[in-house]
Structure formats: structure tokens, C-alpha cells
Design a protein around this nucleic acid. Structure first.
Lengths: 351, 351
DNA sequence: GGGAACATTGCATCCGTATGCAAGCGACGA
DNA sequence: TCGTCGCTTGCATACGGATGCAATGTTCCC
């Protein structure tokens, strides 16, 4: 039992290094490095030999060391705050996959509202992320974002920050809000209302302004315009009750689907109104529950795949061309009409 | 305009290094490093002086270099796959905050089912993550997980992997499933059914076995036991319809809340049954929608905060004591009774 | 056959921080 | 007053790979 250690699962095995592998093979460390670097100057034979040996000896390059040398981390920092709205998990999931496709891992930064945000952004710089993708709707100061993103690829998804020239990719909120207003108008609803979520976010401002403007253009009356305060079911519920207690309205546009869901339940179950007969309801996003037969919610679909694709391509372009000027990229969405505005529309059979 | 560059936002400014800062201050680079390393040998005065200068000159240590030196990355890899169930985003968000509290950033690894999982786990080793937290319900082979976690702190959350001795933290599925069975029994329901999600996951097996066993112990009859195939609203909807077409059952336990929501809507709106009068419905997790008045779902609440806390503390312990033997940590949950099983229970007023 | 252009390979050094070791310094006790 | 001990500080080097440059070997053309 002289070599007892050999039999024990060895948690401490130091990973093989390029130098060691090189020594074992009688080649130089550079050769090993080149074997793993596409496009580097090495003969196909040697590369194959090294990759084969690497496979057998379970060598893989240490990404940390490589980051230090190249000053590229191959990491994208994703700044996130509200995971409650199911739209975001879906977005993040797809985004993270999209980034993996271009060899970027996703480092998540969960911003907690109220806590010291600057402090949380320090890590973005410390970890030397190549790209910063800001999804959080939470208000971030332009200065801190500028500082955090300084010199890196950066994309704001579904939001903008005043006075900060950064590339942004968003669903076309103006198009969406106008489409809803047009739809209400086409339905013959003329006494419409709007329910905001977080009032000061760029997303909300765009939707609200576009909706209100279009409503006026079409000669409809805006009966209520309330702020729910947050993007939650409960907030939508409260807002709907408040509206139901006031002057009669025949169509409500909620700033997103979750608000709309809470609102519909309140209208139907607490206010005793029929949706869509008494009041039509529309949301925004087209999250999964909008398709549920119970809600069957008319909504403006955010084209997640297109948003992800544009975000990823913008990141890669910025990485290739650091001087690329910022751009705004509104992505066209699609009005999805369902039962919550059109009684004749019957919920899809769920297959 | 000789120094035109000065006026332009300088995206390329190379970050200040410890050496440079040291040179500027006339101290050694070691001193700078020590100033940022708690517990290192340095006088309080010098440390203060350095930290002050660092603040003014906007220096912060390069985490990459530090990782290379210390062989600690301060990164936890979170392996995730299903973000559709709202339980997981919530869990991940809290977990990520919990980890930040102990100075660990979260690197997310989104496992795509079907694609090459091993390949995706390579990055866990390359990035040298200190800890691996596996939340994904997707089936992972023991061997690949072992390889990926080799020698690091690792925790399986809400799942186990057969034959793989790893620390796990889960809601006590047995307790939960028994509580539901007991509840059905107390309600006088004796013809019960079970709806599974992903049939081969450890979570499902535990819930299913415990439920079936308890049902038998209590002398109730198990009428249907079906597998929805995935944890989705649609799957729950389909499963419920299938059950409604078969022999009459008076209580259904769905393996999670999303399934239950789909199931309830199907029972009520497609099968024309009353919930809870004709059939009682219970779920598992207590996600947000379980509280919505429309569902008002009886469910077994997973104690997310306790799970997160235990996970984080287990990680820190493992980091301190690498030889720590694996442990199982079932966390006690709580039966939440609502309208879907007890007609008299009225939905909470939403404040 | 000689030389130039090219393809491969290795050498040496750098990336930015952490840390063992030894040197410097002041304080304290005998 | 001198030796010793403890606290600070700096020096030198390690962490693991990437890469410019020089050295070597090949190929091709005149």
C-alpha cells in the first residue's frame, strides 16, 4: 500500500499545462499554444499530433492565462435586474445561447435595486468582460454605465439611457403601441386607457407616448392613464380595479403582458366585467401566458429571436471594429390578435 | 489643438496597473497588491494611502491576473437549462445575489438539451470556476459531471445524480408529496391522480414515489398516473384532458405549479369540471401564479431562501475545506392551502 | 546548382498580480 | 548600549499561454 493515494479519487490533480504537454511530446510550448489557436502558423500534421495527445492526456488550455495574454476574456457581462417578468428569462436564455455560438460566455450581473449599483458594476471592469449587455430596466445613471462600459462592446437591450450614445436593440415600441391603438380603433373602441409599469423607463415612455399620440390622431378619448408602479401581476390587478372604479373605458392597453394578466383577472373576477365584450384588453411582449386559453391575450409580440440575433451581431461587429459608432436598432414586432380583444377569436387548441 | 485626443472620450485608455500605480506613488507593486488583500502584511497607513490613491486614479486590480496567480477565480458556474418554469429564474436570481455576497460571480452555463453537453461543460474547467452549481433538470451523465466538477466545490440543487456522490440541496420532495396526499385524504378525496413532468428526473421520481406510497398507506386509490413529458402549461393542459376523458378522479397532484395551472384551465374550461368541487388540484413550488386569484393554487412551497442559503453556505464550506464529504440536504417546505382544494378558501385580496 | 521566398518551429518575453524570502527598521529587555 | 524579535517593505519569481522574432528547413525557379 505504498501508493495509496493513487487509488483515491484525486480531487487535487493539477491540470496539465501547455508546457508540460509540450515537454512530454518533445515540442515547444508555443507549438501547443498554436495548435489551439485557429489561423496560427503551424503545420497541419503537428497540430493534429498535438490535439490528439491533448485529447488523450485531457489537456485543455487554461482560459484565465489566455485571457491575461490576449487581454480578451471571451466573456460577456449581462446586466440584469428583473427576472420576474418571464420575458426576460426567455430573452436571457436565448441570448446566452447566441453568445455561446460566437464563443462568449455569459457572466450575469444581477443588479439589486436600491443597493449600490456602481459597486456592482466594478466587477464588469475587473473581470475585463469583452462586452456588456444591459437588459436591466432598472434606472442606471449614464455616468456609471459609461464608466463600466468604457472601451468595450456594449449593447442596451430594450432600453435606452438618456444622453448616453450606446448601441441599443429594442423592439419597436412606437410601432407596437400604434398598432394597439389602431387595433382598438378598428374595433370601434373609442374610450381607451393606458396602464404603465415602471413609469420612468425608456420602454414605458416610448410606448406611452406613441399610444397617447396615436389615440389622439385617431380621435379616440384617453380615459385613464395610470402607472401601476412595477411590472407585476399584482400591480396590473390594482391598476385595473382603480380604472374599473372610475369613468367607463372600453379598451385598456397594459404596458406588458403580466400587467395585462393581472388586469384581466381583476376586471373579470373582481369588477364583474366581461373581457372583451365590456372592455378589450391588450398587452405587450407575447409571453407564454398570453397564449394560455384563460388569458388568450391580444398583444404585440417582441421578436425575441431577432432581438437576440441583432444583439449578438452588434457585439461581434463592435469587437471587430472597436471604433464603430453607436446605433439604434428598432426591431419590428407583430400584433397578435386573440380573444381578449376579439370575442369571436377562440383560443387555440393546445397541442 | 495639439492635444486633441485629450478631449475625446478615450475608449482605449489602458487601465492602470498595480506596477504603474506603485511607480507613481514610489512604493512597490507588492505593496499595492497587499493593500487590496485583506489580512496581508501591510501597515494600516500605507494601505490607506494606496487605497486613496487608487480611488483617485481609478485603479482596480485586474481580476484575471489575480486569478492566474491565486488559482482562484471567484466564479461560480451555474449550470442551468429550463428557464421556462418561473421557479428557476427566481431561484437563480436569489442564488446569484447570495453568491455575490460571498464574493462569487455567477457564470451561467445554459445547457441545451440534445446538443453536446460534454462540450458545454468544458468551459467549466477552462474558466477554472471555483464552484459548480447544477440546477438543470436535464439529465446529465454522472461521468461528465464528475469530470466537470473534479476537485471543485459542487452542489446539485433540486436534483441528484444516481451513483454520484455530490452534495445536494433540495426541497424535501418526500415531505411535500406526502403532505399533499395527506391533504387530499383529509379532504375526503379518495380517487386521486398524479401528473408527472419529466418522468426520469430525480425530482419527479421522489415526488411520485412518495405520493404513490402515501396514497396506498392511506387507503386511497390512485386512478391515473400520467407523464406530461415536460414541465409546461401545455403539457399540464394535455395531461388533464387525458385524465378527464378517463375514469373519474376527485383530486390531482401535478408535479409542479405550471403543470397544475395548465391542468386547472383544461379541467375548468375544456372539461367543464369545477375546481375544487369536482376535482381538487394541487401543485408544487408555490410560484407567483399560484397566488393569483384565478388559480389560487394549493401547493407545496419550496423554501427558496433556505435553499439558496444552504447552497451558498455549502459552497463556502467546501471552498474552505476541500475534503468535506458530500452531504444531502433536504430542506423542509410548507403546504400552502388555497382555493384549488378548499372551496371555502377565498383568494387573498391583492394589496 | 544556387539563391530567394516561404513555411515551420522554437526562444524569449510579456500579460498583471500574488507571495516566499530576505532586508530594513524600530522597539524592547537585559 | 547591544542583541533580538516583530512588523513592514521590497525583490524576485511564479502563474499558464500568446506572440514577435530569429533560426531552421523546404520548395521553387532561373
Amino acid at each position: 500500500m505504498n501508493n495509496a493515494d493513487d487509488n483515491i479519487a484525486s480531487p487535487r490533480t493539477k491540470p496539465l499545462t501547455a508546457r508540460e504537454l509540450a515537454r512530454l511530446m518533445g515540442v515547444s510550448q508555443s507549438a501547443v499554444s498554436r495548435a489551439f489557436t485557429p489561423g496560427s502558423s503551424i503545420s497541419p500534421e503537428l497540430r493534429q499530433r498535438i490535439l490528439k495527445a491533448a485529447g488523450e492526456l485531457d489537456y485543455q488550455p487554461n482560459a484565465i492565462a489566455s485571457m491575461l495574454s490576449t487581454r480578451r476574456s471571451n466573456i460577456a457581462g449581462i446586466v440584469v435586474s428583473e427576472m420576474q417578468n418571464p420575458f426576460y428569462p426567455t430573452l436571457i436564455e436565448k441570448l446566452s445561447r447566441g453568445l455561446q455560438r460566437v464563443r462568449l460566455q455569459s457572466l450575469m450581473f444581477n443588479i439589486t435595486r436600491g443597493s449600490n449599483i456602481e459597486e456592482q458594476l466594478v466587477a464588469l471592469r475587473q473581470y475585463n468582460v469583452d462586452a456588456v449587455i444591459i437588459i436591466s430596466a432598472t434606472v442606471l445613471s449614464g455616468a456609471s454605465v459609461q464608466w463600466a462600459t468604457d472601451g468595450r462592446a456594449a449593447v442596451l437591450v430594450n432600453r435606452t439611457i438618456p444622453d448616453l450614445p450606446l448601441t441599443s436593440v429594442s423592439c419597436d415600441n412606437v410601432e407596437g403601441a400604434r398598432a394597439i391603438a389602431d387595433h382598438f380603433h378598428a374595433l370601434g373602441r373609442h374610450r381607451v386607457s393606458y396602464v404603465a409599469g415602471l413609469p420612468h423607463t425608456s420602454t414605458n415612455l416610448e410606448r406611452q407616448n406613441a399610444f397617447v399620440t396615436r389615440v389622439a390622431e385617431l380621435g379616440m378619448r384617453l380615459i385613464h392613464s395610470v402607472a401601476a408602479g412595477e411590472y407585476s401581476y399584482e400591480a396590473g390587478h390594482r391598476a385595473a380595479l382603480e380604472i374599473a372604479r372610475g369613468e367607463k373605458t372600453d379598451a385598456i392597453f397594459f404596458a406588458n403582458d403580466i400587467l395585462a394578466a393581472g388586469g384581466m383577472d381583476a376586471l373579470r373576477e373582481s369588477a364583474g366585467l366581461r373581457v372583451p365584450e365590456d372592455v378589450a384588453v391588450a398587452g405587450f411582449d407575447d409571453v407564454a401566458l398570453a397564449r394560455w386559453p384563460h388569458y388568450s391575450l391580444t398583444t404585440f409580440r417582441q421578436p425575441i429571436d431577432a432581438i437576440v440575433e441583432k444583439t449578438v451581431s452588434s457585439v461581434t461587429q463592435q469587437l471587430e471594429t472597436p471604433s464603430l459608432p453607436p446605433s439604434r436598432n428598432p426591431i419590428s414586432g407583430e400584433l397578435i390578435i386573440r380573444h381578449s380583444t376579439v370575442a369571436e377569436w377562440l383560443p387555440e387548441i393546445i397541442e
